[in-house]
């Protein structure tokens, strides 16, 4: 059973990725698949999520974003930071309010604080990562300089959001 650190709580994952066996009706589909079989997924009656690779443009989702309950953003390595910008765009400009999940080998305790600041509210930790350590890391800083997502509450910020 896969677990997700969702808003600092470790919960069983109620979503399945396309191709996984699942009893539920919540399915995460790669963007390429969503594109290729648009009609099929428009007709999908369950909850729908999409999975972005680092090269995907979140702007492509804008028209169909209301239909999506989850966006999973892939971090194949900790060093590939494109997903941070994807998250900022989704939460900011595109106004996405559903679950924003970071997934991949790059999602580790040393990254989770920045991920949460960019708007990720669900962390699918890399295999072997200790969820307790990740939870602690989310509270590592009480102050910061740049505005960020409300997922992390800091006591003081230097540069406020508009």
């Amino acid at each position: 059973m896969r677990h997700i650190l969702r808003r600092r709580e470790l919960v069983a994952d109620d979503w399945a990725y396309l191709g996984e066996e699942s009893a539920g009706d919540a399915l995460i589909v790669p963007l390429a698949q969503l594109r290729a079989e648009e009609a099929r997924w428009r007709a999908w009656s369950g909850r729908l999520g999409v999975r972005l690779t680092p090269a995907d443009a979140p702007e492509e989702l804008s028209a169909g974003l209301a239909r999506l309950a989850l966006v999973a953003v892939e971090f194949p390595t900790a060093g590939d930071g494109r997903g941070y910008s994807q998250a900022r765009l989704l939460r900011g400009r595109l106004g996405f309010r559903g679950e924003l999940r970071a997934v991949g080998a790059g999602v580790k305790q040393d990254q989770v604080f920045l991920l949460a600041r960019c708007g990720f509210d669900a962390l699918e930790l890399a295999p072997g990562e200790d969820p307790e350590a990740a939870r602690r890391a989310l509270g590592r800083y009480t102050v910061g300089y740049q505005p960020g997502a409300a997922t992390v509450q800091l006591e003081r910020l230097r540069f406020p959001a508009p």
Binding site: A78, G79, D80, G81, Y84, S85, R88, L114, R117, C118, Y141, G144, Y145, Q146, G148, R158, F159
Partner: peptide
């Protein structure tokens, strides 16, 4: 300098 310090979006360029 302050704006760049641990910038959430731009720490893994």
């Amino acid at each position: 300098r302050q704006w760049a310090a641990l910038h959430p979006e731009f720490t893994y360029l």
